[in-house]
Design a protein around this nucleic acid. Structure first.
Lengths: 189, 189
DNA sequence: ACCTGAACACCGTTCAAGT
DNA sequence: ACCTGAACACCGTTCAAGT
């Protein structure tokens, strides 16, 4: 009981830490936000954060998992949508964490823990896209390639400023090109 | 005369700085290489670097321009090649500076001078690809979209580890999809 | 188990001073 | 014009000590 109580408290505390860190990371960027600053916002000593997280990068992973689980709660709604709509949805979702996505990519080579999170996330997204493509009747041998292309396009659109028209042209072109590879002609992916 | 002499000396010195910085950046990464370390390798005081460059990011830009001009000297050879071969060539070229490319993308939001260099580089690459597509007879209205897609694919392949087969599948699929949009059917882009 | 004060070993950068 | 010694204002992180 007492043990359980403590676990709950720790989780609540971590939630507060990650919420504050998330807010500051999104407002100012990961690099521009110091551990001191986060600690000050929480009214604790800077080194207190190190009781909960081994490093600033691990705190970032906590924040990322938090954002991810929030996104996953909104996900079920898009299950049946066509690929183009799914990509547009993912783009809108990630757009709000643009800075965070850039940070993850920028730290891949320096932080193994960020690298691990990133790879796992990519694997998850790509599996989902493959499933969507298969369900839409795309030739099984092409699914993996198309899924990778889809994620590259989402990442590209996310990383580089672009107009709504450009974005639509790219998604439209991709959906058409992917759709033309259907085993059963006539339907659209 | 004396003035000219000095200009030459400054250029030679900058070349040496950038060569050393480039080596250390590629060996250890940008972030893991301190200004102190570069200065030590050159046998100068750390703050000497600030007489030549306003910041570490500006030194990076110097290094990037240096690598770029080296690449440009190797470029003429690929003028007439098909798009797929051009993309493969660019990939091989950038692969050797993978870490540097990741650094640039990671610092876009923090450094205006890096952002400016990146945008200009992208504009240059995209213009070149558009020219190649137009020459190959691709419908003019699609060229911009396809060029953007091409650069996104190159960046994606560069940022994420992949096998030679995966890479070939993606480039092959893209070339085929782009080629099917030719104004004159029969030729290949 | 949780938190702190104080310190460590850096970092990029600045500035006044030299030649 | 070019370079230095010394310092500034940080940074992420550690550690011994408290409760």
């Amino acid at each position: 009981m007492a043990k359980n109580k403590r676990d709950v408290d720790a989780k609540v505390k971590k939630a507060a830490l990650e919420e504050t860190a998330a807010r500051l990371f999104m407002e100012q960027g990961f690099e521009a936000t110091s551990m001191q600053q986060i600690a000050r916002a929480l009214d604790v000593a800077p080194n207190t954060l190190y009781w909960y997280y081994a490093s600033k990068d691990e705190l970032l992973v906590g924040v990322l998992n938090r954002l991810l689980s929030q996104t996953l709660q909104r996900l079920p709604a898009i299950g049946g949508l066509p690929l183009k709509a799914q990509m547009a949805w993912l783009l809108d979702e990630l757009e709000q964490s643009r800075e965070m996505v850039a940070t993850v990519h920028g730290r891949l080579d320096q932080s193994p823990v960020i690298r691990a999170w990133h790879d796992q996330f990519h694997h998850f997204v790509e599996s989902s896209v493959i499933l969507t493509l298969k369900t839409a009747g795309v030739d099984a041998s092409r699914c993996a390639t198309l899924a990778t292309v889809a994620t590259f396009l989402v990442e590209g659109l996310l990383a580089h400023p672009h107009s709504a028209d450009q974005r639509n042209d790219i998604l439209e072109w991709f959906a058409a090109s992917a759709g033309s590879q259907l085993t059963l002609p006539g339907s659209t992916a």
